[in-house]
Amino acid sequence: MAAELARDLAGKVAVITGGSSGIGKGMAEKFAAEGAAVVIADIVDDRGEAVAAELNDQGGTALFVHTDVAEPAQIGRLVAATVDTFGGLDIMVNNAGISGTMHRKFLEDDLADFHKVLSVNLLGVMAGTRDAGRHMSTHGGGSIINLTSIGGIQAGGGVQTYRASKAAVIQFTKSAAIELAYYGIRVNAIAPGNIPTPLLKSSASDENRAAVEEFEAGIRQTMRDDRPLKREGTAEDVAEAALYFASDKSRYVTGTVLPIDGGTVAGKVIRSSGKPIPAN
């Protein structure tokens, strides 16, 4: 009993969209280990069911619910299923996201995937925040965590629709935090950077997958070179930040955007010539 009470999320109920792989899976594992009942929402049924089964086998409590976050009605059903199964909802993680089709130049972008990217990356976050907030507003509050990206903070070339969607998530998160604070609901965002996940590869067709992988490798190497901290980021690093926002340790924190990026958005590394700096 003492060990159970020591866990940060004991007795809590959490929903994680896009929870079957990558960062979402890492958060599901972390939350389950900290005592939360975890609902994994995803469109990849076999993978989501496997993660839920794995968590249950490890002594956790997990459920998979097929959910396409681009369809707000499905998010409403997800929240209802969570409350019906576990009796409440304390933590909502709007993590599901897609990169969109890669183009080497914006002038070559036909914007054909604009509505798809915005539907998943922005509409899904807004509907998830709204529907979770509707429950939390009458049940003592809660924590909502939205996943953005350092691509929504820093300007740059490539994946412009993705960058725009993630920047919109930041502004929405801050605005929702102001409005929902009245109900004791905290709304914060996490901005991962250079965390290896299947996100970018999933946007490539079979014909250009090799080219996209080469392009991605170049981008990631550039980010490594510019990153102040030289250790590689992992899904667990993001999960630790999510745990902080989900737990009572952040009870006085809302409307924030936390980059998990090894210092990338702070600025590029200044490479020294090795010569001593003269005193003034």
Rank of each mutant, 00 (worst) to 15 (best):
A2Y: 02
E4G: 07
R7A: 11
L9E: 09
A10N: 13
K12P: 05
V15W: 00
G18D: 02
S21C: 07
G22D: 00
G22H: 00
G22I: 00
M27I: 15
K30G: 00
K30Q: 13
D45K: 14
R47D: 12
E49T: 13
E54V: 01
N56A: 13
N56E: 15
Q58L: 13
G59V: 05
F64A: 06
D68N: 15
E71C: 06
A73V: 13
Q74D: 12
L78H: 04
L78N: 05
A80W: 01
A81D: 15
V83H: 08
G87V: 11
G87R: 05
I91E: 02
V93A: 12
G97N: 05
G100E: 02
K116W: 01
V117P: 03
M126A: 12
A127R: 09
T129R: 06
H135S: 06
M136L: 10
H139L: 13
G140F: 10
G142Y: 06
G142A: 14
I145E: 03
I145V: 14
T148M: 08
T161P: 05
Y162E: 04
S165Y: 03
Q171K: 12
F172D: 04
A177V: 15
A177C: 13
I178E: 14
Y183I: 01
N188M: 08
P192H: 15
P198K: 08
L200H: 03
N208S: 11
E214A: 14
E214Y: 06
F215H: 10
F215M: 15
A217D: 10
I219R: 07
R220N: 11
R224H: 13
D226M: 15
P228S: 13
P228A: 11
R231C: 03
A239W: 00
A239H: 00
A241Y: 02
L243Q: 08
A246V: 05
S250H: 08
L258R: 01
P259M: 07
D261H: 13
G262W: 04
G263E: 07
V269S: 06
S273I: 07
K275C: 09
I277S: 11
